[in-house]
Amino acid sequence: MAKRIDVKDLNVYYGNFKAVEDVSMTVEPRSVTAFIGPSGCGKSTFLRTLNRMHEVIPGGRVEGSVMLDEEDLYSAKVDPVSVRRTVGMVFQRPNPFPTMSIFDNVAAGLRLNGVKNRKVVTETVEKSLRGANLWNEVKDRLDKPGAGLSGGQQQRLCIARAIAVQPEVMLMDEPCSALDPISTLAIEDLIVSLKDEFTIVIVTHNMQQAARVSDRTAFFNLAATGKPGRLIEIDDTATIFSNPVQKATEDYISGRFG
């Protein structure tokens, strides 16, 4: 059910500030695409335009088009809320709902979208927790608060919560940057297994991580502070890390970045 993302000539603005300029790329279904680049280069901002989350920030808007298969996400008749149901997201810091148990956290997306059938909810919760490699660790304490889990478990809980609404695409904004190496490994394994079902786009500051999990890698950069970020290069991950076309890419991945 995973879908292809086709971005054409996308500019992203916050108010009058142009944050990202002129990005065009294609993300293949059932693949992992990594965005790398220095802080402030617009990779997270661009990621958030893929499910219209940037509009949550006042003044956020785009020019250009983002196609999900045949559907333009920014066409006037598209509801941003339904876009986010199709394109899920996992954030930098684990953010389980603090008033809810583990079970309720995973069920939240279903229940808040009106699914009441208890059997459906229970089955989806188990399936999602298994999908997030968390089931065995929490199956005996589903009624305990989600905030009581460790950081890595919380992040997998958030991934379970995101896949419970069965999106086509999963966006991950530095999902491991708040986690220790063991938890990071668990999430990375999870990402690789999730790509059988979803189109995955991940923002990471960790280049080894990009090399380990992604099929394609996009390098973003900005000319100077205050200038918009741009997509410098996107290619197969192996090519980007061994034989990039652009000099800036090579400088960045080899640590010779300005």
């Binding site: 499910n51 989350m53 949550v56 809320v81 339904s82 876009v83 986010r84 149901r85 199709t86 899920g88 997201m89 954030f91 953010n95 389980p96 709902f97 939240a108 997306g109 808040l112 979208n113 958030c158 919560r161 995101a162 609404v165």
Partner: peptide, 9 residues
């Protein structure tokens, strides 16, 4: 809030 928005709520 963002987590909830991202679930399509």
């Amino acid at each position: 809030r963002e987590a909830s928005f991202a679930l399509g709520v």
